[in-house]
């Protein structure tokens, strides 16, 4: 029973979404299913926040290794939640001056806006920027000319890396117009548009069929392993 009900919810919701694409009569039903998902996901956030609090509080009370980080997590979480929900420091909305709390939570001058601009933006940008470092170390380790395919991959990488910068113009900009197709910047566009696109299309078609078959297995109840083992 514990698994039968979710399975049937998944099957019914799945078929409703599928049919709503083609049959106008089920269109609003499809939208309703989408809205229900959003509501359930929003409610589930309480469970997520609860789990976060529980795990970190337990860590602090047990004085586990690194419990200080858990304390920082909880303090930051609480501060952001309070200033966001309480709209602390938010100026009153000019649109609805008579209504309390009508200003935007992230309006200029608010604490939430400050956290966004001076804490969240730099931190997330820093994490994203780490990619440049990891790409370099991965390239150093992984791009080895082990066989013919790897040599082709390497040569392509060189053309695209150079073609996407001014180095390409400097190295091959002297080529006459009739041979302009061989300039690195044009070669890199050609590689991206022809070879890369062909390969990507093949992968996309394979994925699309894989998604269809997987969805069908779930909708028909053949595959139940997403709820646990398939027994």
């Amino acid at each position: 029973m514990k698994r039968l009900v979710p399975m049937w919810i998944a099957i019914i919701a799945g078929f409703v979404m599928l049919l709503s694409t083609f049959f106008p009569i089920t269109e609003s039903l499809g939208e309703t299913v989408g809205e229900i998902f959003n509501v359930v996901a929003a409610i589930a956030f309480v469970l997520g926040a609860g789990s976060l609090a529980k795990v970190n509080l337990a860590k602090i009370s047990r004085r586990d290794q690194g419990w200080g980080y858990a304390a920082i997590t909880l303090i930051c979480f609480t501060i952001t939640l309070v200033v966001g929900l309480g709209k602390i420091g938010v100026p009153q909305s000019t649109q609805f001056p008579l209504l309390g709390w009508s200003g935007e939570k992230d309006a200029e001058g608010s604490i939430f806006g400050w956290i966004y601009e001076f804490a969240l933006v730099p931190i997330t940008s820093t994490m994203f920027a780490l990619l440049a470092f990891y790409v370099a170390s991965a390239a150093f380790r992984a791009f080895r000319a082990k066989n013919l395919e790897a040599i082709l991959l390497l040569s392509t990488a060189f053309i695209v890396l150079l073609g996407r910068t001014f180095a390409g113009v400097v190295l091959t900009g002297w080529l006459p117009d009739w041979a302009s197709g061989l300039r690195l910047e044009n070669l890199s566009v050609y590689i991206m548009q022809v070879f890369n696109t062909a390969g990507n299309r093949a992968i996309i078609i394979g994925i699309a069929l894989g998604v269809t078959a997987t969805s069908l297995r779930i909708l028909l109840g053949v595959d139940r392993s997403w709820m646990g083992s398939g027994d």
Partner: peptide, 22 residues
């Protein structure tokens, strides 16, 4: 570790069922 609460719940169900089955 999950980045969505709903996924956490679903993952718990999946793992618990597997431990039970084993």
């Amino acid at each position: 570790p999950t980045s969505r609460s709903l996924v956490m719940e679903a993952a718990r169900e999946a793992v618990q069922a597997s431990y039970l089955a084993a």
